[in-house]
Design a protein around this nucleic acid. Structure first.
Length: 478
RNA sequence: GCCGGGGUGGCCGAACGGCUCAGGCGGCUGCCUGCAGAGCAGCUAUAUGUGGGUUCAACUCCCACCCCCGGCUCCA
């Protein structure tokens, strides 16, 4: 039983259809996700994609599948658009901060995983750096060379895309069409020595006049790897020549993933990955223009600085399907946060009123099945959230314990810390004392004193709530 | 220019041929409360860019137009 829980359907970019997901090896999934270029902070648009991938992984695991999840760290090889300088992004970052490229890479790699953790994104099974795999890349390029797919011009070793029969299949365009389109729309100058517009660099030579911080010896000359080779090489190294899922942002379809496929299939003749999944962009309302002009990005830290729980952003992402654009505004983030906090409050209320008996009604199973069916239908998280709210509002047909258990089950996929308000730390003694004094004041109908103490506690970050069952407190969220 | 994706109530967003066109947020009313908060109950909104067409039936399919966003070798 590879998949004991149910059938999973995923939208495959290769076929532009939802397909039944069948892993190559029963019960196991090998998945590769394109990781960050660590020259700068990842912004919340980047993180929407990582959240989508995290949800994908969690859904697979929820189905009882064992997921081997590989992600690269790009720490070399991304050129800036200004071809004249020939610098790569890492070197630009280093110059800006007067550090070495290696320091820059370490720093932003660390920051990336800190932010990912704040969004409850699981760490990949394997994280691999491009610069740790230079020799693997060189031997891969050699294989391409042996098979006659490469040629050398002034600035590097290139892949000849005309040699591959179905180049561009991911874009649903063939080689000729792609070439025409790219010629027509090029914003950036092409190296005129390239044989085809779609040809791309495998190994780039260091500039003659200057020493790069990152460069390596190779059979073709000192230089550094091209833009796409790392993912192909590392993906195949850790997951095999043919693995299950490859994902990334939608922008990777026409070039990065297209070229990954080209390189891999030129060597192996096998499909690199069986399912290609792509997340849509986070876009910004008219009032906000982010990204592009570097420096004006919204990071996870920005959200925190604005007083938000990072998981409110995760909730926001879950309200939209991963293949639809999502409009980010501070207002929508706020409404996501309100919803999230309310949900946690419900969970807390349930947790404090659990029945002792643990019997399971048919309704319990019904909810569980519905949830599974929804998430297995191409990760329909908006529907899963709607079901969650229906469950929360469900009257007497389920016990609190059943509801609570279901919510905890759902949260394995949502990862919204729905139980965050449940197990609160103890209050400091002085706060306990204040609460006791307030209760006395309330008994004596001394509202002025009671309200004053409540204010006092609020200043300490403790919110009091009077309920029919007595006074209750919680730590102010943030 | 070419390619791709869209335009759904005050906001964010599901649905994608028919079953009341989800859900959340916001707003309102009531219950509860000393008050507040939380919760509960209910309400809210002439909602599907415009004009045609197909159909017994369209948000959903077709055509045209308008507008928006993304990609086109830096970009999740």
């Amino acid at each position: 039983m590879g998949n004991p829980k149910g059938e999973i359907y995923l939208f495959n970019t290769l076929t532009r259809r939802k397909e039944r997901f069948v892993p190559i090896e029963k019960g196991k999934v090998r998945m590769y996700c394109c990781g960050p270029t660590v020259y700068w902070y990842a912004h919340i648009g980047n993180f929407r994609t990582y959240i989508f991938e995290d949800v994908l992984r969690r859904v697979l695991e929820f189905n009882g599948l064992e997921v081997k999840h590989v992600m690269n760290i790009t720490d070399v090889g991304h050129l800036t658009s200004d071809a004249d300088t020939g610098e790569d992004k890492m070197e630009v970052g280093a110059k800006r901060e007067r550090k070495t490229v290696w320091e820059i890479a370490d720093f932003y790699t660390g920051k990336f995983f800190e932010d990912a953790e704040r969004l409850n994104i699981l760490k990949p099974t394997i994280v691999c750096r491009a610069t740790d795999h230079i020799s693997d890349m060189i031997s891969f390029i050699k294989k391409l060379e042996e098979r006659g797919y490469t040629y050398i011009i002034d600035d590097g070793v290139y892949f000849d895309t005309s040699k591959l029969k179905n180049y561009g299949k991911l874009t649903e365009m063939d080689f000729e069409k792609l070439n025409e389109n790219l010629k027509a729309g090029a914003r950036v100058e092409f190296n005129p020595n390239k044989r085809n517009v779609t040809d791309f660099c495998l190994w780039r030579f260091s500039p003659r006049d200057r020493k790069r911080q990152m460069e390596w010896e190779s059979p073709w000359g000192v230089g550094f790897p091209g833009w796409h080779i790392e993912c192909t090489v590392m993906g195949m190294k850790y997951l095999g020549e043919n693995f299950d899922i490859h994902c990334g942002g939608i922008d990777h379809i026409p070039i990065h993933h297209t070229n990954e496929i080209a390189q891999a299939e030129a060597v192996t003749g096998k499909p690199l990955a069986n399912y290609w999944l792509h997340g849509a962009f986070l876009v910004f309302g008219k009032s906000m223009k982010m990204a592009k002009s570097a420096g004006e990005i919204i990071t996870v830290q920005t959200l925190v600085d604005e007083g938000f729980d990072p998981l409110a952003f995760r909730y926001l992402c879950l309200t939209a399907h991963y293949r639809s654009e999502l409009v980010f505004t501070w207002e929508s983030l706020k409404s996501a946060q309100n919803a999230l906090f309310t949900l946690r409050e419900h969970v807390r209320n349930l947790a404090e009123n659990l029945e002792s008996e643990k019997s399971r009604s048919p309704k319990f199973e019904e909810y569980h099945e519905k949830f599974l069916k929804i998430i297995n239908d191409d990760l329909n998280m908006p529907k899963a959230l709607a079901l969650t709210w229906t469950l929360v509002r469900e009257e007497k047909t389920l016990t609190n314990r059943e509801k609570y258990d279901l919510l905890m089950e759902f949260d394995k996929v949502f990862a919204l810390d729905l139980a965050r308000y449940v197990q609160m730390e103890r209050l400091p003694p002085e706060a306990e004392e204040l609460i006791r004094r307030r209760e006395e004041a309330r008994k004596a109908k001394d509202w002025a004193t009671a309200d004053k103490i409540r204010e006092q506690l609020k200043a300490m970050g403790i919110i009091l709530e009077d309920t029919p069952q007595g006074v209750r407190w919680r730590i102010e969220k943030r």
